[in-house]
């Protein structure tokens, strides 16, 4: 047999994946099933709903091992192999168990020139782990990610596919880690448009608690 058949370059999904959760836990509740059925309704074919179903599964189980992908695929009504292909294509679906809080630090070019790497390295030193790793207590994971679309308020990071934390400084990173350790969530930060500062005297939204402004990032050497 050709060598590449015995040792495939690409990791293939197990037909019957080993369980990551006990069978009693590896189920969707009726409410979750109804939610997935509602997602399926939104598309002409059931397959369209797989991304939402995987999101739901990830929120419930924390990550997407093969047996969870299989569960989501069966609930949506599409082949497991196709769902596996989808789950492994996108970066936001976690294929391995992550910390309770995943800190996605943007270092793409706007953040790079505004001190994104300083923030990444500060965080790595503070938590004692490298990017791609999880702290021993299972609390934090750090990832280096590509552009998150908040270039004007660089450097920034995202907490577990949720809140954006803009205009990072070492103080702000400290405050963030403290808040997350205490079990608090980071509030949604609305970034004020410079023209709104001039015309409206501040942020245009009155329904948010936290606002940020677009700021000139401090020069690199003063960040660390």
């Amino acid at each position: 047999m050709a060598d590449f058949i015995k040792n495939p370059v690409v990791e293939l999904p197990e037909r019957n994946p080993a369980p990551s959760f006990p069978a009693s836990e590896l189920v969707f509740t009726d409410a979750e099933k109804a939610q997935i059925a509602e997602y399926v309704e939104r598309y002409p074919t059931a397959d369209g709903a797989i991304m939402r179903a995987l999101w739901l599964a990830q929120e419930k189980f924390g990550y997407l091992p093969p047996d969870v992908i299989k569960l989501a695929a069966e609930e949506v009504g599409m082949p497991y192999a196709k769902a596996y292909g989808v789950a492994t294509f996108y970066t936001q679906y976690y294929k391995k168990k992550m910390g309770a809080h995943v800190l996605d630090v943007c270092t793409c070019f706007s953040c790079q020139i505004c001190g994104g790497y300083d923030m990444l390295h500060y965080l790595e030193n503070k938590l004692g782990i490298h990017k791609g790793e999880t702290t021993e207590d299972g609390q934090f994971s750090i990832q280096e990610v590509e552009c998150l679309g908040a270039c004007g308020s660089a450097p920034m990071l995202q907490v577990t596919n949720g809140s954006y934390v803009h205009n990072l400084t070492t103080d702000k990173v400290d405050a963030l880690i403290d808040a997350l350790r205490e079990g608090k969530s980071w509030p949604f930060e609305s970034v004020t448009l410079p023209q709104d500062e001039d015309d409206l005297g501040g942020n245009r939204r009155t329904d948010v608690t936290a606002t940020e402004t677009y700021q000139t990032p401090p020069a690199s050497e003063t960040i660390a």
Binding site: I113, C114, C151, G152, L193, Q195, T216
Partner: peptide
């Protein structure tokens, strides 16, 4: 216009 980088007043401007 989304202006970012080493400017004194970055941000989105219309």
């Amino acid at each position: 216009y989304g202006i970012s980088g080493h400017v004194n007043r970055p941000g989105v401007y219309e």
